[in-house]
Design a binder for these strands. Structure first.
Lengths: 139, 139
DNA sequence: CTTGACCTTCCCGTTACTGGAACCCCCATA
DNA sequence: TATGGGGGTTCCAGTAACGGGAAGGTCAAG
């Protein structure tokens, strides 16, 4: 298979596949004309990578997952630990975003959003450090 | 004020402050010895930037916010629109993370996490495309 | 006079790609 | 035979927002 076919079947852009080869995640063969020649196993790996990436695993985590996947004697505990770790990372990100969201939503709510210049959002950003979302109370 | 003082008072690393000068967000004066010389207004701007960044606004959005802040004739509607836009971006990110989280949590739940190699997480990643989290049902 | 804490610039590394230039390969058609 | 189009190849640069670290100038204290 040429890179175009693999791209279509795996759903990954050709650019990304080349990049994955650069960093050693896949090692396709080469045809006489210099074209990359992908085996089914390569396609399989790429699809695996695509799904792991879609779950938010970093490239390094994907590398580990792939190694575990190919190690038929691995302990599932290792995989689970990796996944749980990633889960915590995701939870942290969600928590941070929700905190931002809460503050920002409050400010947006307080802003009239009309043609006048008065704006609690800017006022809040301009204030010295304080508990977020207190702008309205301080006045 | 030298950069160290401003860093301490604004809570931003000196590196970041230099970077902000590079990209034109602040324009401190220069002392005879070449040191940056920050006015109160510079410190104020930097603190403003720090808070805007903490709310997740991009540098470009911060640039806009700063311009609006300094434009005493702005319409608060512009600020509100920017903030609402950012709010939507945050909501999108949260939704995506929650989707990832759900899939991953399901997989983690299905994995025994013991010394045996059988692992639904890897099995799922290895499967052809399907609705996420269906691995357990397919067996 | 020297030490040590500051400050300066500059360049590389990070993450995971994406876009583009310049070039090669292969097949089909006029 | 030219040529046109749609593959493929490499390499370089850029993205966001800094952080690390080198090499060197400056300043106050002892």
């Amino acid at each position: 298979m040429n890179i175009g076919d693999v791209a279509e079947r795996s759903g990954l852009p050709a650019k990304t596949i080349r990049f994955y080869e650069d960093i050693g995640l896949v090692k396709p063969l080469r045809a006489a004309n210099g074209y990359r020649s992908f085996r089914d196993s390569d396609l399989h790996k790429l699809a695996f990578l695509g799904r792991a990436r879609a779950l938010g695993f970093s490239i390094d985590e994907c590398r580990l997952l792939l190694a575990l996947y190919e190690d038929k004697g691995r302990e599932s505990a290792q995989v689970k630990a990796l996944a749980e770790d990633h889960l915590r990372t995701i939870d942290d990100k969600i928590a941070q975003l929700r905190s931002m969201r809460a503050t920002l939503a409050h400010l947006v709510h307080c802003c009239a959003g009309d043609s006048r210049p008065d704006c609690p959002i800017l006022d809040d950003l301009a204030q010295p450090a304080h508990a977020p979302g207190q702008a309205a109370h301080r006045a």
